[in-house]
Design a binder for these strands. Structure first.
Lengths: 195, 195
DNA sequence: GAGGCTGATGACACGGTGTGTCGTCAAGTA
DNA sequence: TACTTGACGACACACCGTGTCATCAGCCTC
């Protein structure tokens, strides 16, 4: 006989999400989550650093994905091309099946200041990964920093736009579209990519 | 005879900053701060929403400054020129006398994850102010969003660079320099401003 | 298969955060 | 003098997050 039901982390995750949707994030306490999952409060904090972290589980792998973007980028591309092509080809496909989940998740995050803070911090971790990538490509420090900011901007804006759309387009398509809008608003030269 | 010494908020602010420098942010408790300021714990939370907010007091006025940037921007300028000129002429002068204070403040913020989260959230409030400004200038939604992101990037990067420098340059000079670097890394057309 | 090890969980205590509520009292106002 | 307004003290309290130790199923080893 098993002493505990398996999959504690996943049960906590589902219980937490259900409660966040039912009654709001701030109004949900950790004891409520663990009661629904059949565990103790202490166990919750063994799986998640804090209450907010439930909504960001599994995002730890994204920096590695960013690293792969730079590993696979052609040598001659401009910084902007690296970002747009990398986001569209490497990053975006990882999100395509998650439109539904990410939409409800987004609604929860936007309902709470603390969650928005955490989300911005997660994006800044991605920015640091991109910064390393641009440094390795030989960009000067200031330019690498700026390129990293632009990368995260394009990712963030593209994801937001994609989630606002009911369905239809892929995230990759939105990324390319957002990239064009970026070139337009900054007066940048058109893509030099291997179109 | 006065019942309480005046300037409770400022006393709390000074006591908190001193303690943060002496023993670190996380290691400092609110009761420690209020004891040093000669007040009670409850009173601390009447002046600051939470412990972190001590380090962001007085920044509530920045969105209004951003609004002024757009109110004073010449009609024909490109989005990038609006940002660079506005930051250099309107925003930067407000910081010039604060290099010393902002440096120690920055050191504290960088020492704590929670503080970095809060700082990013404050920047995103500025971004929303810039977004309204670009919308009012008639930019399409996507382009306004991207321009707002770029604005905050230039502000954030410029401020960081300025604080890293010992002294010498004004923040406005760093802003213009960062703007040039941005044009370089994104392949943008040079400034069309009233040089 | 007996013993030992490991890893996840329960149980308990505890300091710190942030809020609700009520009482107190100086200062301003009529 | 009487009333009102703030700012603060005092107290209680729920929740957050952590440290610590006991427990016990499953696995490994000999």
């Amino acid at each position: 006989m098993v002493r505990w039901e398996p999959g504690a982390a996943e049960r906590l995750h589902r219980a937490a999400l259900d409660l966040f949707v039912e009654q709001g994030f701030a109004e949900t306490t950790v004891p409520q989550i663990t009661a629904r999952a059949g565990l103790t409060t202490r166990t919750f904090f063994r799986h998640f650093a804090d209450k907010r972290e439930v909504l960001f589980a599994g995002e730890d792998e994204l920096p590695a994905v960013v690293a792969r973007v730079f590993a696979e980028a052609a040598p001659g591309l401009s910084p902007l091309d690296v970002v747009v092509e990398g986001l569209a080809d490497v990053v975006a496909p990882r999100f395509d099946g998650l439109h539904g989940y990410l939409t409800t998740r987004q609604r929860i995050v936007e309902s709470d200041e603390g969650l928005r803070e955490r989300e911005l911090r997660k994006l800044s971790v991605l920015r640091e990964a991109a910064l390393r990538g641009f440094r390795d490509r030989g960009l000067a420090e200031v330019e690498a920093v700026l390129a990293a900011h632009v990368s995260v901007t394009l990712f963030d804006v593209s994801l937001s736009r994609w989630l606002e759309e009911d369905a239809g387009r892929t995230l990759a398509a939105v990324v390319r579209d957002t990239g064009e809008a970026f070139r337009s608003v900054t007066g940048s030269a058109p893509a030099t990519g291997t179109a």
